[in-house]
Amino acid sequence: MSQTAEKYFFNDYLWHAVAAVMVTTAIAAIFLLAPTEETMGIAQRIVYIHVSVAWMGLAAFVLMAITSGMYLFRRDLAWDHWSRAALEIGWLCCSLTLATGSLWAHAAWNIWWTWDPRLTTAFVLWAMYSAALVLRGGVEDPHRRARMGAIVAIIGMLDVPLVIMATRWFRGIHPKSPQMEPTMRVVLLMSVVCFTLFFTMLLLLRRSQLRSADMLEDLQAQAEA
């Protein structure tokens, strides 16, 4: 790779622009390209966004648990920046999942909420994300905060399979793999890819922001000393 190409390839702004364009395209595709569904009408378009953020919410949880494990193993705050960025983005995505899911459920089932396995799992994830956020907010020492957050993240990750098992045995009405028109499929795939890229950019941005904040505080502490 030539030096100019490298410069552009690793340019954050370039990727941010790409993510912005892609997410705009995805939204445009959802409303203009995808056909309106027969029974549910326009409300069905929520699904494209819902699936994207739901997947991101789960992926961020896994990322948080893995980076937390790495932190406990290496004791390097760089891993904690990943973990914390994943926590915040994951919480955002999980909240969006619950909100969009609820809207969709109102249109489809005429109820806002039900104790379907996936809904319950999403709620439990959201509750764990929230608890971890509150816990981190109360600890000042960065290493201690990282350690506490890591323990909660790892227990949470161990808990997820049990939650899925328990809720699946409990009851279930969530659509598993609905039949879709080819155009719908394409739009869904596109939306998932675009939103994933968008939230990944957001996560990377937050991570580098956390790292900069950390460095800044270090410098301030040094200057004071």
Binding site: T120, V124, A127, M128, S130, A131, V134, L135, G138, V152, I155, G156, D159, L162, V163, M165, A166, T167
Partner: peptide, 13 residues
């Protein structure tokens, strides 16, 4: 903080 931390974890239980 403790109930907030523990309750989501013990939901399956």
């Amino acid at each position: 903080l403790l109930p907030l931390l523990v309750l989501p974890m013990v939901i399956p239980l």
